[in-house]
Each structure stands twice: as C-alpha cells, then as structure tokens.
Design a protein around this nucleic acid. Structure first.
Lengths: 321, 321
DNA sequence: CTGAAAGCGCTTACAG
DNA sequence: CTGAAAGCGCTTACAG
C-alpha cells in the first residue's frame, strides 16, 4: 500500500497539485471556487491523505517540531508537569513538543540535525558552540541559562526564602544540605548563594554545608555533623535531599522541627506525606511553562522575549520547619 | 549564512555528490580511493557539513527517529529511567529516541505524521485504528499491550508477590489500596487480580479494596476502614499510595508493621526514606528497557519478536512489611 | 573508480 | 481562478 500523496488527491479531484496545496493549507490570497474546495477536501479525507512532513520540511526549511532537551540530571514530577503544560500551550500554535533526555552519550548536534526542529528549548544551559551551530542552521534556541533570561534567576531567591522561614522559626545556626550529584551542582550552588546572602543579612554565621546523598546513611551522617556544630535549621537542596535529612534526624532521635527544622525545595507529591509533613519551596510550574511557551512563540514571531510575569518561588508551609 | 549541503562538500573536494554520499555513508561495494575518501571527509568536517534529515527521510522514506509515546498518566522516576536506558540501547544503532507525553489533546496521528519516525513505541496500548494507520505508513509499531507481548503480563504477578510477603509476615486479613486515578485503572485492576488470586490460594477472605488518593486525609480514612474490618496487611497500588497509607497509619496511631503491614510497588527513590522504610516490589527497568530495545531492533531487522528473558518483578524487603 | 540524472513529496513564484 | 515547472537536499541505479 503506497503512500497517498498530494498528486493522488489532485488526480482524484481533477485539479492540479497547486490547487490541492492551496486548499489544504488555506493559503491566503488565492480564491478557489467553493465547489473545488469542497471536492479537494472531501477527496483528501476519503483517501486518508497526510502530507509528508519530510517533504514539507525540506521544501520550507522548517518543521513544526519543538525539541525540548532535558538535562542529564533526574527531572522530577515538577519538570514533568511543566513539560505537559508547555506541550499544551504550544499545541495551540500547531507545534508538537518532543522531549529528549540528554544522556551525555551522543552529541546534541546529532539529534537536532536528525529532527530539524523549528525550536530547541533547553532546560539547562547549552554549550555555546551548540547554540551557535543551531542558530546558524536557522533553529530558534530558547534556553534557561541565566544570561538568556536576564537577571531574573530565581535560584538564589529560593535559598533566601528557605533561610527566612528558618529564621522566622527562631533558628540562628543554619546548615545547608547540598546534593552530591555533580550534574546539578550549578543549581545547588546558586541556591546556596542565596542561603549565604540571607544568613549574612540576618547576622548569622556561614551556613554549614554538607553534601547529602538520597539515602538514610548519608542523612544520618550529615545530621550528626550538624548536631555537633549546634545547627538547628537545615535548608536542603531539594525535597529528596530533605527526605534523607528527615530520615537521618529520625535515626538520631532528633525531633523535627523541635530539635532540627528542615525545609526542602520543589513540593514533590510525596512532600506532604513525609513524617513530619515537609515544609518546602515551590515554583509555579504552570507559570513557568507559560513563560517558556511565550518565549518560544515570541522567538517564532520575531518578537522580543516577553518579561517574566512576577510569580517566582513561594513557601509551602507544613510541619518540618 | 546558508546551509552547507553535500553539493558544497562535493565542489570543495572536487568530486561529485555521488562520491560524497558514498564516502559519508560508508556505502558498501564501492571502493573510493583512500586519497579521495580523506579529502571528502576532511572537507565535510571543515565546512561543518550536516546532512539534511528531511531530505534523507524524504528520499529514503524512513528516518532514524524512534518516537516513544507515554500514556496520559503520570510516569514516575521508574519509567523515566527506563526511557534513559532505552535511549542508550537504541543509540548504538544510530537511532534517536524522542518522547512524547500523550495528553489527549491532539490526535496521535498529527504527531507521527509530523515526525515520520522509523518506529513508534507505546508504553500503553494504542488505539487499533492508530496502529493500522501507522503500519500502513510503513512505521514499525511496538506497544506493550497484553496481546502484543503475549501472555507474559507481569502485573498480576506483582499483586501475588505483595500478598506472599504479607502472608509470610503472618497477615491473614488483607486490604488493597487501589488508586483513585482512573487513567491507571487498567494496571491497578490487573495487580488487584493477582492479589485476589493469591488470597484465594491461601484460603484468605477477599481483599478489602479501598481507593486511596495521594494525601494524608485519604490515607487516614482508608486506614480507619481497614482497622474496623480487622485488616492487618495492606498491599498498595504503588509506592505513592503506600506513602499515603503510611501517613494514615501514623495519624491513627497504628504501628507499622506491628499493627498494619504495608507494601508498595515501584521502589521509587524515596521509598527507602519512608518512615518506616517501605517494603515494595520492583521491576528491573534495565531489563525492561533492554527487552523493549530488543523488540524495536528485531522489528527493524524483520526478525521475530524476542522472548522476554525471565526477570520479572521482585521483592525489595525493608521494614514496612 | 567516479559522475550525470532521476526522483522522494511538497510549496510557490510565475504564467496563463 | 487554476496549472506547469522549478527546486528544497539527498541517495542510488545506471553509465561510463
């Protein structure tokens, strides 16, 4: 069963391929008689005609695909839901979102050359070499590196919010549970910078930074370190790390938040079910997705990048801090 | 800056496009002089030549893309890691994996027509109409519906394993914490079927099924129901639901596993950090990914689908059951 | 051992 | 209002 092409539709309808193309694409500035229009549409439907994306891409030099490149670090449910929203928002413009987990294995260039997307969206910063290559190939590049989006990097603010909460709860000696995962070091460092600033502003000592793996043993060791140093409030890189700290506190017989307050980041679905329920910082992923979608669309239309519409990270107050 | 094409490489190298194509694709059965080979390769590299995937796809009728369609339900870290493995395995064959979250919004056909993938992999069953359409378009379809993979549906076995563990721990009255999420009802029902079978085989009463949302209130209500009915062991649809049950037991002052044993499914990263650490069932995602990759490759090569290599779900024993 | 030419399916100036 | 023709960039019989 051979592929149905526009030539088939043209022949069956008794018109030229030009007319078929005009009708099917609703090309402006060409008035086709209503009868012809109908006939073509009907024939296309009857034959189950689907235009070849490859041919269209080859001809026009652009596809309707948005390639979303995920970083090499584990994305949680938060990013996942963000992607869903992004896909919805872009679908309205006839754009399809495809997601690729960068795994370090293959060069990014293999991928974007293979798909020829209209736009590539990066959830972490791209290598500048890649960015240049993509732009040269006529691909829009939208990434979330600090330079790309101006000074509005929300990461430090997250750390600040954590400290505010801890201080409001009367904690004066702060610990920071950073991640041992080097792949997300960039984020952890930015959040930690915010923690440092806030500590300084409140006249507190430098936060005591301990890397914590997502397991109980690591959490236990970290908690011992903090206890020895008199730390009573811990800001964690994210909720998973916070869970490990919680487990460590439990193992050490420390009451949370009585002896040790713990605050995470992300508000993962399980955060509310922690023991005790985890206080955390959340970023509105709907808003983040809307912002990203707006940037993609602005880039497409040649408009200047939109401003971020406020929002930013907010506190989710539960029991752990 | 115009796109670099094979014609540019040909001109610069002083050969024809045919030769460029032969060299770059390592076409067998054509011996190009080593000098020419080198010159072409060098020129291509110098010019930064990247073949147009669109042209190649149009010409050959097939692309190097594997489109992985995720179901409309929330995929956890487990599926995510499986996809990573799949991408790795297929990368060795020069295939790029792209992931699409089906969101119900747009018809699947829009997507596969837009990407013209070589293969479409579905993590849940496809609509037979879609499958037919894809096959007609020459796209390999690999999905995980029960019929596609024969009788080896591992879901019931998961439920059985849960009951075995509970019974081994002396529990004689079993509860089932199913999900309230209709999108995964198919899976929940299959697992529950396994639970039912195992209960029957052990001469136990029917499991007491309660839908549980992933929040503490829902867990608390469910625990009350089970306690009133004398249930002492609960199998949960997955780890998230199990967390809710754990939270409910805590709220009700029930000791786990003393008063109530709880067992989940998935072994999510946080399972070991639950209070108490969550006993659960895991499926080896490496093996699952390898199996899926093998199926994709077999389909590509026209080989019969490979047999699943044993494995299957296994128990991860911790403290909660 | 290498090149000229056809053709994949589409869109779009350009003619009528 | 509609059609013939060119061309996007590639691969591959087919000739030399």
């Amino acid at each position: 069963m051979a592929r149905v092409t526009s030539a088939d539709v043209a022949r069956e309808s008794g018109v030229s391929r030009t007319t078929v193309s005009y009708v099917l694409n609703g090309t402006a500035g060409t008035s086709i008689s209503e009868a012809t229009r109908r006939r073509v549409l009907e024939t296309a439907a009857r034959l189950g005609y689907a235009p070849s994306a490859a041919a269209r891409t080859l001809r026009s030099g652009r596809s309707d695909l948005v390639l979303c490149v995920l970083p090499d670090w584990p994305v949680g449910p938060v990013v996942e839901s963000m992607l869903d929203h992004l896909a919805d928002d872009l679908a309205e413009r006839g754009l399809s979102v495809l997601v690729h987990h960068a795994r370090g294995e293959r060069p990014l260039s293999d991928l974007w050359r293979a798909v020829t997307p209209r736009t590539v969206v990066g959830l972490s910063a791209f290598d500048p070499v890649d960015v240049r290559a993509m732009r040269r190939a006529g691909i829009q590049v939208v990434d979330t590196s600090p330079d790309e989006r101006g000074a509005e990097n929300p990461q430090p603010r997250i750390g600040r919010l954590q400290v505010e909460r801890l201080v409001a709860g009367g904690r004066r000696r702060i610990g920071y549970a950073t991640t041992a995962d080097r792949r997300v070091a960039e984020f952890a460092d930015q959040r930690l910078a915010g923690v440092r600033e806030a500590c300084a502003e409140h006249g507190l000592a430098e936060p005591l930074v301990v890397p914590v793996d997502v397991d109980a043993a690591s959490g236990t060791a970290a908690v011992a370190t903090w206890r020895d140093a008199g730390v009573t409030g811990v800001a964690a890189y994210n909720d998973e790390v916070a869970f490990a700290v919680l487990a460590g506190a439990r193992a050490a017989g420390l009451a949370v938040p009585g002896d040790l307050a713990v605050i995470g980041v992300d508000d993962v679905p399980l955060a509310a079910l922690a023991s005790p329920p985890l206080t955390t910082i959340t970023q509105s992923m709907d808003r983040e997705a809307a912002y990203l979608a707006a940037r993609v669309i602005a880039a497409l239309d040649g408009d200047p990048p939109p401003k971020r519409s406020g929002g930013g990270p907010t506190l989710v107050a539960r029991d752990s801090a």
